[in-house]
Amino acid sequence: MEEPIIVVDKVNAGYEKLQTLFDVSLEIPRGKITVIVGPNGAGKSTLLKTLFGLTKVYSGRITFEGRDITRLPPHERAKLGMAFIFQLNNVFAELTVKENLRLAGHDLPASVLEERIREVFETFPRLRERLDQKAGTMSGGERQMLAMAIGMIRKPKVFLIDEPTAGLAPKLAREVLENVRKLNEQGYTIVLVEQNVKAGLEIGDKGVLVVSGRIAFDGPAAELLARKDLAKMYLGIS
C-alpha cells in the first residue's frame, strides 16, 4: 500500500487555552478524497486547520510526506505543497480575479504563472470572463470557484477544503462538490470538511467521523455512510 501523504499521531490541539482535539491519530491517503464529518462544534474544522498549522498543537506529531511539520508555520507548509481553502473569506475581495491568481503564484516564475493561470481557466472557464472584476463583487459559487483556482495555481499535493458548500443553494452546492471531485480526478489529494454529510461522503473515498474532538470512525466513506447507528446518533440522518 502507498505511504499516506499526511500522518497525524496522537495530536492534542486547540485555540490557545481551549483544547478542542484530543489524542487524534489519522492517516490521509495520497490521491484520494478524505471526508471529515461530525456534529456542529465537534472539531472538524479545527482538525483541518491543525493539519495546516492554524491552531496550537500541545502535543503529538504531524508529518507531511514523512517530514515532521508539527511546528512549521502555515506559509512554510504552503511551500511544501499544501493548500487550504477557507469556508469564508477565501478570496481577496478587494483584489481583482487576475490579482488574486497572480498573488497565489507570487513565488512562481512569470512564464510558469501565466501557464498555470491558463490551465486554471480550462478547469473554470467562467473565471476568464471575470478577469478584471473585484472578487468581492462575485457570486458565492463563483467565489468558491476562484478559491479553488487560487489553490490550484501552486499545484499543491494536497487540498484542505473547509465546508465549501456552507450557505450555498443546493444546486450550487452540488456544483462545488462536483468541482472538488474534478480536482481529485486531476490527481490532487483532497481533505474535505463537509456539513452536507451524504453528498460529501458520496464523493469521498475515506470517511472520518469526529465527535467531541475525538475520532469516532475512520474507514471507507461508503462504510460510514452505511452505518445507520452513527448516522442517526451524530449526523442527523435517519
Partner: peptide, 17 residues
C-alpha cells in the same frame, strides 16, 4: 500586492505562502 493581501486577509495570505 503581498502587503495589500496581508492587510486585507492575513490568514488567507499566510496559507498562500
Amino acid at each position: 500586492v503581498k502587503m495589500r493581501a496581508s492587510i486585507e486577509n492575513p490568514p488567507l495570505a499566510e496559507v498562500l505562502g
